[in-house]
Computed example of a mutant assay.
Amino acid sequence: MAGVLDSVNQRTQLVGQNRLELLLFRLGGEQLYGINVFKVKEVLQCPALNEIPKRNPVVCGVAHIRGGTISIMDMNQAIGRRPLPDVENCFVIITEYNRTTQGFLVRSVERIVNMNWEDIHPPPKGAGKENYLTAVTEVEGKLVEIIDVEKILAEVSPLPEEISEGVFEDGIAERVVQKHVLIVDDSTIARKQIQRVVESMGIKTTLKKDGREAYEYLAGLVEDGVDPYAELVLVISDIEMPEMDGYTFTAEVRNHPGLKDLHIILHTSLSGVFNEAMVKKVGANDFLAKFNPDELARRVNDRVLEMTGESVLEEDEGEE
């Protein structure tokens, strides 16, 4: 496995083409799972683990890796199954999600495959609301399940979701009482986190689970003669999504004459220096790393002020 991720830094050209690369791995059985290569920092044989007191049962322990201390979670146990046996012969996938680094214990790591987001599909409806999948795909006739890592992290180490006092202005919702925020994310947990932040500001929300569903919704508004600018405050979209990713979704919106000026924030757990360049390339208005409720609320607040001209008025009054 030493060289499996050697060329990760050269793979950014796939971004913006509705493509991704999946690192395939296995847990307790023959089922294949996948994780976006852009979330992966390193793959290594399971190092020596140190137990920590009062740890979550899913956390196997902590490991000292490259000068840092990282929590290692048993992914098989995290999705409701038995702990992986023979830990010393397992592998650890070091990932970066939501501004933190963590490791996931897996049975084996297979290879990297190049995929198109159009071939990545939402979980079957019969999978139930409590499943740990964000998507499924097929590789060489075999089903690959893509796990909702954000759901695992929210259960093991919940992030604060309360907005600090004074982050948004009093009465901000009254300025956009007839409008709503469109939230686009394939993770049920992420959608709910964003929804709670926006609705705690008093602003209504509409939720869509991927870029294609969101784009069809927006295009449908135009076809029905509804002015999307009269309907929406802004769009908050994830990047990693089945069917159509956030970059492609943004580019499609910008190419639609009736939608091209919508305010879009790309809100994602993806990390990397390519993000800023890609935001500019596809024409998004802003980029925000997941998940900080204060930062998210501040962006929504600022957008409302920009729409209503309040910020301009306040600056003019200050100059007087």
Rank of each mutant, 00 (worst) to 15 (best):
G3V: 00
L14A: 08
E21A: 09
L23F: 05
L24S: 11
E30T: 12
Q31A: 15
K41M: 05
Q45D: 13
P47M: 00
L49R: 03
L49M: 08
E51V: 07
G61A: 07
R66H: 07
S71G: 09
P83V: 08
P85L: 05
E88H: 11
E88D: 13
I93P: 02
I94E: 00
T95H: 05
Q102K: 13
G103D: 07
F104N: 04
R111H: 06
M115I: 06
P123F: 02
K125T: 10
A127W: 05
E140N: 12
G141I: 10
G141D: 04
L143C: 05
E145N: 13
E145W: 01
A154G: 15
A154W: 12
E155Q: 15
P158D: 14
P160E: 12
E161I: 05
E165I: 07
G166E: 06
G166A: 09
V167A: 05
A173N: 14
E174C: 03
K179I: 07
D185Q: 13
D185W: 12
R191G: 07
M201T: 04
M201R: 07
M201P: 00
T205L: 01
L207T: 08
K209S: 14
R212N: 02
A214M: 06
L221T: 09
L221E: 15
V226C: 09
P228A: 13
V235E: 08
V235A: 06
I236M: 04
M241H: 05
D245K: 08
Y247E: 03
T248C: 03
F249V: 06
V253S: 06
N255K: 15
K260M: 14
D261L: 12
L262G: 12
L262I: 15
H263P: 07
I265A: 02
T268R: 13
S269L: 11
S269G: 15
E276C: 03
V279K: 10
V282N: 04
G283W: 13
G283V: 11
D294K: 03
E295A: 11
R298G: 02
R298W: 09
V300W: 02
N301S: 12
R303F: 01
T308Q: 14
T308Y: 11
G309V: 06
E310M: 10
V312W: 07
G318R: 14
